[in-house]
């Protein structure tokens, strides 16, 4: 790139915008290592004091466990239901497939706040107690469309032919799914599961409205915010960031890494 005014301006602009994007994250992580009680300048660390406080906080650890449990189970349910629906609709194309696809993807078009409110009113009306189970139900509602859409888009004719060959050779429908369809689609399944997991892990408003005593991590963080700025909140936030970051890297290496290798060998 030559040193022309337009190029210099481009570099400055990109640097300014990247600075804007990274500023809060850098501040968050930096002041999680603060020594004193307030996470504002001057920085007087580094200290791991607030990380120790976080791991010693039993409510926080309980919320962390709840989050992992809800995210794992709700993503598994979303993936299973989404896979079966995508398989049924993409393979056999029964009459009314278009309408069913519309129903299955409809929750993506409605904001989480409204989905949460609908569930709250319904559970309240029917006298169903709010718990981790109700949070999980809500998370399946938002992640099922995602898993369905990803898997539906990946079920091409190429795989259909191989599945037909398996059926002609005498495989039962269960064998076709477990031994043929699932192995061929596992990168897509993996991507769907991890996306669903990160969405559930980060979801706040549904978890707030349909929970009661057992809460997930974002709700517990929300409760902490009432006490104002606090380095322990920084520590928890940085920790959540680290976990999500590891997920993204895993997803990228496993799913997109495979595709990249395939693409390069095809050249």
């Amino acid at each position: 790139m030559k040193l022309r005014p337009a190029n210099i301006l481009s570099v400055l602009y990109a640097a300014a915008l990247y600075g804007f994007i990274f500023l809060p994250v850098v501040v968050l992580v930096l002041f999680s290592f603060q020594e004193s009680r307030i996470p504002v300048p001057p920085f007087d660390g580094p200290s791991l004091r607030w990380y120790a406080a976080m791991f010693a906080d039993s409510r926080m650890m309980e919320a962390l466990g709840n989050s992992l449990l809800v995210a794992t189970l709700s993503s598994l349910v979303s993936l299973t239901l989404g896979f079966l629906a995508a398989y049924g609709l993409a393979r056999h194309k029964p009459p009314g497939t278009g309408a069913l696809r519309l129903v299955l993807t409809a929750p993506m078009t409605v904001s989480y706040l409204i989905i949460a409110m609908g569930l709250l009113i319904t559970f309240n009306h029917l006298g169903i107690p709010r718990s981790l189970l109700t949070i999980g139900i809500g998370h399946v509602v938002i992640n099922l469309p995602l898993c369905f859409a990803i898997l539906y888009s990946q079920m091409g004719d190429h795989q259909a032919n191989i599945e037909r060959a398996a059926r002609d050779l005498g495989a039962s429908e269960v064998q076709v799914i477990l031994l043929v369809a699932l192995p061929m689609l596992w990168p897509a399944c993996f991507a769907a599961f991890f996306l669903a997991f990160t969405f559930s892990w980060d979801e706040f408003i549904i978890a707030l409205l349909v929970s009661r005593f057992d809460v997930t991590l974002p709700v517990e963080i929300w409760n902490m915010l009432r006490s104002g700025l606090n380095p322990q909140t920084n520590a928890v936030g940085s920790f959540v960031f680290l976990i999500s970051f590891v997920f993204v890297i895993v997803l990228d290496v496993i799913v997109f890494g495979r595709r990249r290798v395939k693409g390069e060998s095809a050249k």
Binding site: F22, P24, V25, L28, V40, G237, V240, S244, V248
Partner: peptide
Amino acid sequence: LPFWTSYVVRSYSWLLV
């Protein structure tokens, strides 16, 4: 990358700034 922090935490980070 910054969007993989939790949504609640991201708003809180702006509060710090």
